[in-house]
Amino acid sequence: MTEITQERWARLREQRRPHETIYELAADDYDTELIGVSDDGRLHLLLAIDLAPPSLPPDLQGIQVRILESEQVWIDISSRSHHEELLTLVANKVLYAIRTEGRDPAISVERTIEDVRAALRPLTPDLSASEQIGLFGELWVLSNVLFPTLGPRVCHLWSGPESERHDFVGQGVHVEVKTTTKSEPKHEISRLDQLRAPSGKRLLFISVILEKSLGGDETLADRVDDIREKLGTDGNALDVFDSRLAQLGWHEGLRQTGALLRFTFRNVHVFEVTGSFPRLPDDYVPPLGVTSIKYSINVGSLPSLDVSEVRQILAMV
C-alpha cells in the first residue's frame, strides 16, 4: 500500500505555484483518494463518497473534517502545516481501514478520529470559562491589533502570563486587554495599579467584546492556530508563544475535549489611559489594612482611538 509521507507533502509544496491548489492520487491504483496542498497552505486528504454522512466528527488537534461537493462528493480531512505529522498518521490509518479492511470511508474517518482522540486524551485540567474568555481576548488583540504593527516580536512583549501589571509591555508603551461577554463594555479592574501608566510611558486599554454561544465562530484552538500560522518559521517567536500559552494553562489536549467554549467576536475599542479615562487617581492610597481593591469601569461612552492613531502609538513600543 502506498503510504502518505512527509516527503510527499514536501514535494507537493515544491510543485505548487503561488495561489494554486495542487492534488495528486494518494496511490496510482485508487482514483477515489487524493492528497493535496491548497492555496492557503493547508494539507488535505480527499475521499470520494456517494452520499454525505449525517454528521462529522469534531475537529481534532487542528485536523478538520468537512464535506466538499462538486461533480463528486468528497470527505475532506485537512490541517495546517504545523499539524502535518498528526494528519499523516490519521490519513494512513484511514487509508488502511478503507483499502485493507474494506471499511466505508465515512465510518473509517470517524473511527480513526475517535481512536486518536482517545489516545491523546489530556491528563491536565481544563481552562475555566473566565480563563478562556480572557485568553481568547488577549490572543485576538495579539493577532489583529498588535501583530500588524509589531510583527513576531509581539510574542516577546506578551507579559500577561508572567502576572505582570499589564498584558503587553514595551519600552515606550504598555497595553492592558480586558474581555467581556456582556452586552456592554464593562470590565473589572483587579489591581490598584492596573490603570496606571508607568512613568515616562503610555498605556493603552483595549476592550474586547465577545459573544459566547454553541454556534460561535471560533474557539481558543482557532486563535492559537491563527497566531502560529502568522509566526511561520520564526522558531524563536514560536517557542516564546508556546511557552506563554503553557503558563496560562493551554495544552493541546484541550482540542479534543468538550471543554472549549465557542465565541463570536463582536467588537473591539482601543483607548489611551489618560485624562478623563475612568480609574482611581494615580495618587490614591487605600486605607491602612486594605490589601487589594477590585472595581468595575464602563468604557461605552468614551471616544476610542482610530486605527492610524493606534498604529502611531504602537510604533513607540
Rank of each mutant, 00 (worst) to 15 (best):
L45Q: 07
V240S: 12
S199E: 14
M1R: 10
L288N: 07
S108V: 03
L203S: 08
I313K: 02
I209H: 10
K93L: 15
R255D: 15
K230P: 01
R311Q: 13
L12F: 03
D39I: 06
M1I: 05
L123R: 07
L127F: 00
L86W: 02
S183I: 10
E110R: 09
T32Y: 12
V270K: 09
D225H: 08
L210T: 11
E252G: 08
D193I: 05
T264S: 15
F277H: 08
G102D: 02
L25D: 14
C155V: 09
R262H: 14
A221G: 13
P148D: 07
A91V: 01
W140H: 14
A246P: 01
R279L: 08
S308Y: 03
H44Q: 12
R99P: 01
V268L: 14
I49N: 06
G215Q: 12
V175R: 08
I77W: 01
L260P: 01
L127P: 01
L34R: 15
S207T: 09
R196A: 06
I49C: 10
R255F: 05
G275T: 05
T291E: 13
L89I: 13
G62H: 11
N267E: 15
L210W: 09
T219A: 11
E7M: 00
Q72M: 14
A119F: 05
T5E: 05
H166K: 09
F277R: 06
Q256L: 10
D115Y: 01
A26E: 12
V270N: 11
R244Y: 04
Y30T: 08
L261R: 09
I35D: 06
F241Q: 06
H174A: 09
P58Q: 07
I107V: 14
L260S: 10
G215C: 10
Y30G: 00
V307E: 15
R196P: 00
T112E: 00
Q194A: 08
V177E: 09
A197G: 04
H44R: 12
E229F: 04
